[in-house]
Simulated scan of single mutants.
Amino acid sequence: MDLQITNKTAFISGSTKGIGFATALGLAKEGVKVWLNGRSEMSVDAAKARLLAAVPDASVSGIAADLSTAAGCNAVVNALPAVDILVNNLGIFEPKPFEAIPDEDWFRFFETNVMSGVRLSRHYLPLMKQQNWGRIIFVSSESAIQIPEEMIHYGMTKTAQIALARGLAESTKGTAVTVNTVLPGPSRSEGVETFVQQIADQQGMTFGEMEREFFNNIRPSSLIQRFATPEEDANMIVYLCGVGAAATNGAALRVDGGVVRAAL
């Protein structure tokens, strides 16, 4: 499918690895001018090299900025005043019992997972409406629907992203701008892979054994009974960026492997 977005400009937050990088790679293959983001110049440069190795003729740039802060978001919009596509992918997670989550963690998760998208969208959305074309996508999680007991603060921010995206979509009525949310399920990103491997090592298990244990006991409702790959998640995000997805607006689309037991 030709997504008809060649030469469009996209900024993907938190895109030096995982779903963010897979999304940047997918967009680059469609001829999109991609802007990567990470917290350090080293991580951004490494991601640029990886992407160019895969797509040698790609147009790829990078901005090192901590988007959990207003200053970091300002640095991005100053360096890149306008985009056609904004993917709010940045997110952090951390298993922790509710009683052990201090105020500082609640604010840190909200600033990173929610306010980064608020600040970037606040700048770019009006410009998209002025040019009468644009795509904003929030990368949420199935944890927005089934709040995990071990990560309530994380789940709260993922639910907030859905509400934010739907509200922003309402403001695009009658335009060719869309705002949607994608809800990946358990995915084998670098962060998750490292976390699962550490637990597996502690328990004297292989990654595969730990994966089976996870889906047997923690996410037994999964229909695929495995971690999705970042590329599988990114496929949905990249599709939503295309011209052919123009009729999808204000939607929350699951790529959760069937974890959420619901038809809609």
Results as ranks from 00 to 15, higher is better:
residue 178 T to Y: 03
residue 243 V to W: 11
residue 254 R to A: 11
residue 260 V to F: 05
residue 247 A to G: 03
residue 221 S to V: 01
residue 238 V to R: 03
residue 232 E to Q: 15
residue 195 F to C: 00
residue 176 A to Y: 11
residue 253 L to G: 02
residue 198 Q to P: 03
residue 253 L to N: 01
residue 195 F to L: 15
residue 240 L to V: 12
residue 210 M to G: 00
residue 245 A to K: 04
residue 224 I to E: 03
residue 245 A to M: 08
residue 241 C to N: 06
residue 237 I to K: 08
residue 253 L to Q: 01
residue 199 I to T: 10
residue 228 A to G: 07
residue 181 T to Q: 06
residue 192 V to I: 15
residue 234 A to C: 07
residue 253 L to A: 05
residue 173 K to H: 10
residue 254 R to V: 02
residue 213 E to G: 08
residue 196 V to H: 01
residue 180 N to G: 07
residue 226 R to L: 06
residue 260 V to R: 00
residue 225 Q to R: 15
residue 250 G to I: 04
residue 223 L to F: 09
residue 258 G to I: 08
residue 203 Q to E: 01
residue 254 R to I: 01
residue 257 G to K: 05
residue 183 L to C: 12
residue 204 G to D: 02
residue 241 C to D: 09
residue 220 P to R: 12
residue 201 D to E: 14
residue 252 A to H: 07
residue 224 I to G: 04
residue 195 F to S: 14
residue 260 V to M: 04
residue 257 G to T: 10
residue 181 T to M: 04
residue 232 E to T: 09
residue 242 G to R: 06
residue 188 R to T: 06
residue 202 Q to F: 06
residue 224 I to V: 15
residue 172 T to R: 00
residue 219 R to S: 13
residue 188 R to K: 15
residue 256 D to P: 05
residue 222 S to C: 11
residue 211 E to G: 05
residue 176 A to K: 14
residue 251 A to H: 09
residue 238 V to L: 09
residue 182 V to D: 00
residue 191 G to P: 02
residue 227 F to K: 05
residue 229 T to N: 04
residue 192 V to C: 02
residue 178 T to I: 05
residue 231 E to M: 05
residue 191 G to L: 12
residue 172 T to Q: 06
residue 184 P to A: 09
residue 238 V to N: 06
residue 189 S to F: 01
residue 239 Y to L: 13
residue 175 T to W: 11
residue 217 N to P: 01
residue 236 M to K: 06
residue 243 V to I: 11
residue 189 S to M: 11
residue 224 I to P: 03
residue 230 P to H: 05
residue 204 G to S: 07
residue 194 T to G: 00
residue 219 R to H: 10
residue 212 R to N: 14
